[in-house]
C-alpha cells in the first residue's frame, strides 16, 4: 500500500505491506533507528514518537494508519547542533544510562509538557507510567523533565 507522511519535517512516500508496524517502518524503511522496540506490544514505551503532536507507541500503530500524518522521532528533536531543551536537561541531570528507553522518555516528555507546562513531581511520574526504564530508577528522569519545564517556561 502507498502511504505518504511527514517525518521530522520531510515528506515521504512508500509502498508497504499493511502489516508493517509504524516502528518497523521507521527503523527498517526509513533507517531511523533512534526509535527502539522494547516489548512490541505497547507495554514499555521505548518506541514512543509523536504523531500530529501527540505521544504514541509506534509499535502498536500500523504504518498505514499514519498515512497523511506528521511524525516526529527523536532524530527530529534537535535543531542541528543545538539539542532540544528536553534533551539538554536529560544530559544535565544524568537522566539516562544505557540510552535504550531514552528516546521514548524524551518523546513522552514532549507530550507531558505540552499539556501541562508546570507539572508537579507526581504529575511527571504519572505521565511516565507508560515508559519503563530499568537503569535510572526514574529519579533523574523526573529531575530532567522538571528542569526542562523550567527551561521551556523561561
Amino acid at each position: 500500500m502507498q502511504i505518504s507522511l511527514t517525518i521530522n519535517g520531510k515528506s515521504h512516500s512508500n509502498d508497504i505491506e499493511p502489516r508493517m508496524s509504524l516502528v518497523h517502518y521507521l527503523r527498517e524503511v526509513m533507517d531511523l533507528t533512534g526509535t527502539h522496540v522494547g516489548c512490541d506490544t505497547s507495554g514499555c514505551g521505548a518506541c514512543t514518537i509523536t504523531l500530529d503532536g501527540n505521544a504514541v507507541k509506534s509499535c502498536t500503530l500500523l504504518a498505514v494508519q499514519a498515512d497523511g500524518c506528521e511524525i516526529m522521532t527523536i532524530e527530529g528533536m534537535a535543531n542541528g547542533e543545538q539539542m532540544h531543551p528536553i534533551q539538554e536537561a536529560f544530559k544535565e541531570n544524568h537522566g539516562l544510562q544505557c540510552g535504550f528507553c531514552t528516546p521514548g522518555m524524551v518523546m513522552t516528555a514532549v507530550d507531558i509538557l505540552k499539556s501541562n507546562p508546570n507539572p508537579t513531581e507526581e504529575e511527571i511520574r504519572h505521565g511516565l507510567e507508560g515508559n519503563f526504564c530499568r537503569c535510572t530508577g526514574y529519579h533523574n528522569i523526573v529531575k530532567s523533565i522538571q528542569q526542562a519545564a523550567e527551561q521551556l517556561n523561561s
Partner: peptide
C-alpha cells in the same frame, strides 16, 4: 485508562 500514549490512540 492506560497511559498518555495509549490514551492518545
Amino acid at each position: 485508562i492506560g497511559d498518555i500514549q495509549v490514551r492518545n490512540r
